[in-house]
Simulated assay, not measured.
Amino acid sequence: MSREFDVLYGASGVLETSDGRSRALRGERWCDEPDEADRALLDTCAGPTLDIGCGPGRLTGELAARGVVALGIDTSPLAVRLTNGRNGPALRRDVFAALPGAGDWREALLIDGNIGIGGDPAALLRRVRGLLRPGGVAWVEVEPPGAGVWIGGARVVRAGRGGAVFRWAVVGAEAIEALGLAAGFRRVRVTELFGRWFATLTSNPDDLDSVRPEADDSANPMWTMR
């Protein structure tokens, strides 16, 4: 299990993408307790909440500890075990497979770059929109402004050894609006929280102000994309 843990969540390693770029993997943060940005986001979650690509379960586990109905899903059996170890319910499941509660989730989380899952952010957001109830909210972590949309191949490299290539995508803050609207969401708001960037996608514009995370606007500028 320790070798599998190192491959998936070890602190040292990079994600190499077919455009020639390398991005540091954040294994230590994924395995740690929720940080300030995580907590600000989770404060808005009343549940039921679906954590897509839950990884080691820091978000699902925290929601469960707060008494919020939540479910983590991940294709990694280790991720499911680690999430269960945090007393967070989790299933080994692909987001495009049959899922419990489809069409009735109040919130869906795509955090830690998980908008890249499958290498097709448009299809992923359409799927997420279909998993939510009317008026449901998707929280999507995105790259800082300027990243645009990139789709291609990626692999995890650790200690000079690369894993299998898989499809991946990167979405910047300025690009999420068009993707969200095309997927059937009605309004998108992008927020910077403690140096990380999140988009709030809702099917009901009237609900957006009531679910946005609180932040110090002087340090974390916010704007609404229409």
Score class of each variant (00 low, 15 high):
M1A: 09
M1S: 14
S2A: 09
R3Y: 12
R3C: 00
D6R: 12
V7W: 14
L8R: 14
G10P: 10
G10H: 13
S12A: 10
E16M: 11
T17R: 14
S18D: 15
G20E: 08
S22K: 14
E28Y: 04
R29H: 13
R29N: 03
W30I: 00
D32C: 09
E33F: 10
P34Q: 05
P34N: 05
D35N: 09
A40K: 11
C45S: 15
G47H: 04
T49D: 09
G55H: 13
G61W: 02
L63N: 08
L63A: 11
A64F: 13
R66N: 09
G67K: 15
A70W: 11
A70V: 13
T75R: 15
T75F: 06
G85E: 01
R86V: 00
R86A: 07
N87T: 05
N87W: 10
A90N: 02
R93P: 07
V95C: 03
L109Q: 11
I111H: 08
D112Q: 11
G113Y: 05
N114L: 09
G116I: 04
P121E: 01
R127N: 06
R133D: 02
R133I: 02
V140T: 12
V140I: 08
V142H: 14
P144N: 06
P145E: 09
P145G: 08
P145M: 01
G146D: 01
G148F: 14
V149A: 04
W150C: 06
I151C: 15
I151R: 15
G153F: 12
A154T: 12
V156C: 02
V157C: 13
A159I: 10
R161C: 07
R161M: 14
R161H: 15
A164R: 07
A164W: 00
W168M: 11
A169M: 10
G172N: 05
G180K: 04
G180Y: 05
A182W: 03
A182N: 08
G184I: 06
V188W: 03
V188N: 01
R196Q: 03
T200N: 00
T202M: 03
P205S: 13
A215D: 07
S218K: 01
A219P: 12
W223M: 14
W223P: 02
T224Y: 15
M225Q: 12
